[in-house]
Design a protein around this nucleic acid. Sequence first.
DNA 1: CTTCTAACA
DNA 2: TGTTAGAA
Length: 134
Amino acid sequence: MKIGEVAERTALSIRSLRHYDELGLVSPSAHSPGGFRLYTEADVERLLLIRRMKPLGFSLDRMKDFCRALDTLGAGGGSAGGDVAGGEGQGARFDDDAATTISEIGAEATERLERLRKHLAYAEEFVEIIDRLS
DNA sequence: CTTCTAACA
DNA sequence: TGTTAGAA
């Protein structure tokens, strides 16, 4: 699907989508002969993942790290990507780094979520006050 | 009308 | 990130 539809489905601006593509955060899996970005369902899923991280305040670089780790862990799986006899020593190492990144970001996400909840509470208090005044 | 790139009140 | 110019 083209960028316009993706923007609607992900609630992300076309500007952001192009930006993410330039940064290599989420690039469309294909291009039309005319040069239009063509996204797949998988691309949209990745974009939705980005959307979920956004409110937690992760930097785009951090999101990129997360996606990369996810790909490393997902594609290689248990180093079943067709390794030759004895050639999986490195694969295990990459998987380990990826797993580490995932847990690091996971811990960071928990912290950021707590802060977000605290701020939400502040906002709710504000609205409470306003409602009483109205 | 939609998308693309590049650049900036 | 938004917006905008000019072209495809």
